[in-house]
Structure formats: C-alpha cells, structure tokens
C-alpha cells in the first residue's frame, strides 16, 4: 500500500534515526500549554478533548509537523480547535499575538 495515504504522525515502522536517551528540562511556557489543555479537557463541558487535540495535531501540514516542537504542536492544534468551536475568534487571537510580538 502506498505511503501517500499514511499520515505524517503515523510513523511506526519508519526509520527516523538513532534515539538520544536524554531529556531537556521542560520550560515554563511548555508547562502552561500542558496546563491549559488539562484544564480544558477536564471541564464537565469538555471544551477540548485529548482526541480533538490529537486530531488537530494530525491535521497540521506535514512539513510543520516535522519541524516544530512537541508543545508547539499542542498549542497550534489547541488554538485551531478553540477557533473552530467559536470559543476564540481568529481575529482577536491574531491581534493578541501581534500585540505580544510588538510589546515583548
């Protein structure tokens, strides 16, 4: 079966090189992304489930999936899903990012 129907995240059996058994210390912003996701998924009304988070990550363009970091994939997916659900508005999110970039 040809690989063009295999999704980028579905990598079991491929060869992505040797494993480096080391770890960096998780950064504070990464902890915050993780906490946002937990808080949303644990709500009774379940704003965003882990299944949705995963689906959103899987829908990222393959080139992006391959180049950005773990928690970068999380926040990319999470923000897309919040916009998709109308919890956040794309324009207000973009404006907030711009303001942070200008002010930071």
């Amino acid at each position: 079966m040809s690989d063009d129907i295999r999704q980028q995240h579905d990598m079991g059996g491929l060869d992505k090189g040797p494993v480096t058994p080391s770890a960096h210390e998780i950064e504070p912003w990464e902890k915050r992304v993780e906490a946002i996701m937990r808080l949303l998924s644990m709500r009774k009304d379940r704003f965003v489930t882990v299944d949705e988070l995963r689906r959103g990550i899987e829908e990222l363009p393959p080139e992006l999936y391959d180049t950005i970091g773990y928690y970068e994939r999380w926040i990319a997916s999470l923000s897309n899903i919040l916009v998709e659900k109308g919890v956040l508005d794309r324009a207000e999110l973009d404006a907030r990012v711009k303001a942070l970039e200008a002010g930071a």
């Binding site: 912003w29 808080l39 923000s79 919890v87 907030r96 990012v97 942070l100 970039e101």
Partner: peptide, 26 residues
Amino acid sequence: EADEPQGYYQHLAAATRSLLIEKGVF
C-alpha cells in the same frame, strides 16, 4: 519569563492563555 524563547508559538500560547482567562474559562 524573560529568559524564555519568544517565538511565534510562545506568543500564541500566551495569547491563548490570556484570552481564555479573560473570558472566564479558567
């Protein structure tokens, strides 16, 4: 926080967090 990386995704995370807090989600 000043020592943290400040690329697009860090800003996206901060923007998402602040908007959700303002909207009273948490």
